[in-house]
Simulated assay, not measured.
Amino acid sequence: MNDSTPLLGFTVGITASRRAEEFATLLTRRGASVVHAPAIRIIPLADDTELERVTREIVADPPKIVVATTGIGFRGWVEAADGWGLAEKLGEALSQARLLARGPKAKGAIRAADLKEEWSPAGESSAEVLDHLLAEGVEGVRIAVQLHGATTEWEPVADFCEVLRCAGADVIPVPVYRWVPPDDQSAMDKLIELAATRGLDAITFTSAPAVASMLDRARETGMLDPLIHALRQRVVVTCVGPVTAAPFVELEVPTTMPSRFRLGALARHLADELPRRASRIRAAGHDLGIRGGCVVVDGEVKQLAPASMSLLRALGARPGRVVSREQLLAVLPGGGDDTHAVETAVARLRSSLGAAKVVQTVVKRGYRLAVDPVDCGDEE
């Protein structure tokens, strides 16, 4: 492992549907293994009858305020309106409104449509936009809010609209780039299983709809509780920004994010964050880094069989301390009650590591990683 490949040995899940290949390249260049499972499928805007209905409503009765939350959504809305022969009328309606842009991409899309935003928050968050509106008062004000996708319980913009309604606003949700789950969810099912079974070191999200879609799928397949447990305990959840992270905040799942809400910044943030959080064990003169799907021994990635990986995780959870044969048997795939299976699995683990002395036999007690006692404290 070196400074150019800080993610060597780490396995990162990508849920993005757009620019996923570009993001994967940024991670693999830094040494990561990538598992891609697109969480959402975008419905072409020109085919979205609900968006056309809302657009005609806005043309007929323009709102006083329009909140643009994403650049791609606002641009797509204008393009779809052009396809319906409504572009000029929509432009006239929007020009009469006060336009608020959540971030620079939304601002750029507004200007590309020959319109001008009135205000945009410094922190690029929906919460700042909401505070701004509530501070000036919205009682009786007609407000159009561009949504991120389908409205679900995990969708933060849905809460945004509800707060405005409670404050007395007449809210028009604008469902640009409506999303639905992928037709084939097998890749997402695999990603959820990997996260729940320690096969991932990190999972990344670039939109709130992707978070909502994954959580919905986990619940449908009975995997929501183990998934949430894994995300709270060991899988690093990395989001592009606070809007994307909002559903996890509600679930008390810790998240991390870059200071700038961009793909490049997200990749650099992961390259800094994962090595910092990873445990490093010095055993029998070797440096070990136990990852989600492999182990790094003296800077070299070693791919282990599931049984060997399970044993190493159990030993690594208590570095230098004895783990009994019975405890190790319990973590072996298939289990059973023959402790001789542990001896066979340990032999294979030693062979796979290429460093036999890393795993030490403690006669009549079990096994341990051969960690210097100074590093691990008194043995229990």
Rank of each mutant, 00 (worst) to 15 (best):
P121L: 03
F160H: 09
D159H: 13
W119F: 06
L164A: 12
S126G: 11
S126M: 09
G140V: 10
V171Y: 08
V171G: 08
G140I: 07
W154D: 15
A112R: 13
L147Q: 15
D170A: 09
G108P: 01
R165A: 09
V157M: 11
P156C: 03
C166Q: 15
E118M: 00
E118L: 05
P121V: 04
G123Q: 07
G168H: 08
G168W: 09
A106P: 03
W119R: 05
V171L: 08
C161T: 08
R165Y: 06
R111T: 10
E136G: 08
E162C: 07
A167Q: 08
I172T: 14
T151W: 07
C166S: 13
S125H: 02
G123S: 10
E124V: 00
A158Q: 07
G108M: 03
K105G: 01
H148N: 07
E153V: 14
A169N: 11
P156H: 03
G149D: 13
L147M: 13
L130K: 06
A169V: 11
R165P: 04
I172K: 09
S126R: 03
E153S: 13
T151P: 00
E118K: 05
W119S: 02
A109V: 02
A127P: 00
L164W: 09
L130N: 02
A122F: 05
S120N: 05
V129I: 15
Q146M: 03
A150V: 13
D170T: 10
E124P: 01
G149E: 13
